[in-house]
């Protein structure tokens, strides 16, 4: 007799919503697991976690979670997060955003939430393209890549989201990939415990769209291989020059510091008489 065993993290899932809609080989399912593993390891009160998704593949992660969630508007996740966090500082707000959601349409909100040091955690799933809409170029798509809207290759430079977050004022920033589960879970745990704006960027494979158009393979393993080959640790990267770092993804923690968190644009003070 084969004994049926259920994933212990299943208790956090909206069972009625399964099976999920992610493509075979997509990284979103892995990231969902990494997040729940981090929550479970930390024994966080799941009732007090609010998850937010905008629009896109990654944005659908919250619809599978047994939490209070907001979903369905493109790019406004951090605006939503602000209203909840300021009014209910006792709640933990976690945002799942794709690269398009966070830094294309939501770029302005991203800058300002970083600047304010809003006390929320952003899990950015960077799959290098607009996947749900069919594989169009994104601000993270590598230069010269072929996508559905760059048939002759992309002539736009990419954005380094982690660098952007650090310079805008975020207080915990790291980048990992789905190929680094242990480091990713560890980093999500740090982010969830961090007081302030925390960003964990996770490079993730999209075999269906980015893989097929940009890398000419729909094989998830090969897409993951491509990410791995381009990835380099922060310690190693420090020893290389700009030319050697071209086309490389630097993995690691870029900042971890303390700064007062955002509570409102102006806070009451008794007038001096």
């Amino acid at each position: 007799m084969v004994q049926q065993r259920t994933n212990p993290l299943r208790k956090y899932i909206r069972n009625r919503k399964l099976p999920h809609f992610f493509c075979p080989g997509c990284g979103c399912g892995q990231i969902l697991n990494y997040f729940l593993k981090a929550v479970d390891d930390l024994q966080l009160d799941f009732k007090k976690i609010i998850t937010i998704g905008g629009v896109g593949c990654t944005a659908r992660i919250p619809i599978y979670l047994n939490t209070d969630s907001l979903h369905g508007v493109h790019g406004r996740t951090l605006a939503w997060a602000t209203g909840i966090k300021l009014y209910r500082p006792d709640l933990k707000v976690v945002i799942f955003a794709g690269d398009g959601d966070l830094v294309s349409i939501g770029g302005n909100h991203f800058l300002h939430a970083s600047r304010r040091n809003l006390d929320v955690t952003v899990i950015l799933v960077n799959n290098f393209n607009f996947a749900m809409t069919g594989g169009q170029v994104a601000p993270t798509t590598p230069f010269n890549s072929v996508t559905m809207t760059t048939p002759y290759g992309s002539k736009e430079n990419t954005i380094d989201v982690c660098k952007l977050a650090v310079s805008a004022g975020a207080t915990y920033v790291s980048r990992w990939s789905t190929a680094k589960p242990i480091q990713t879970v560890k980093s999500i745990k740090k982010a969830l415990q961090h007081k302030g704006f925390s960003l964990v960027e996770i490079l993730s494979q999209c075999p269906t769209n980015f893989g097929r158009y940009a890398l000419r393979t729909g094989d998830p393993e090969k897409v993951l291989e491509w990410i791995k080959n381009r990835s380099i640790s922060k310690t190693k990267a420090e020893k290389l020059n700009e030319h050697e770092l071209k086309d490389k993804f630097i993995l690691g923690e870029f900042i971890d510091k303390k700064r007062p968190v955002f509570q409102g644009t102006t806070l009451f003070k008794e007038e001096d008489n």
Binding site: R76, A79, W80, T82, G83, L86, L91, H109
Partner: peptide
């Protein structure tokens, strides 16, 4: 956009 969406989420909270 920030204004309206944060007003909405604050209300939900």
């Amino acid at each position: 956009l920030f204004s309206i969406y944060s007003v909405i989420s604050a209300s939900l909270a």
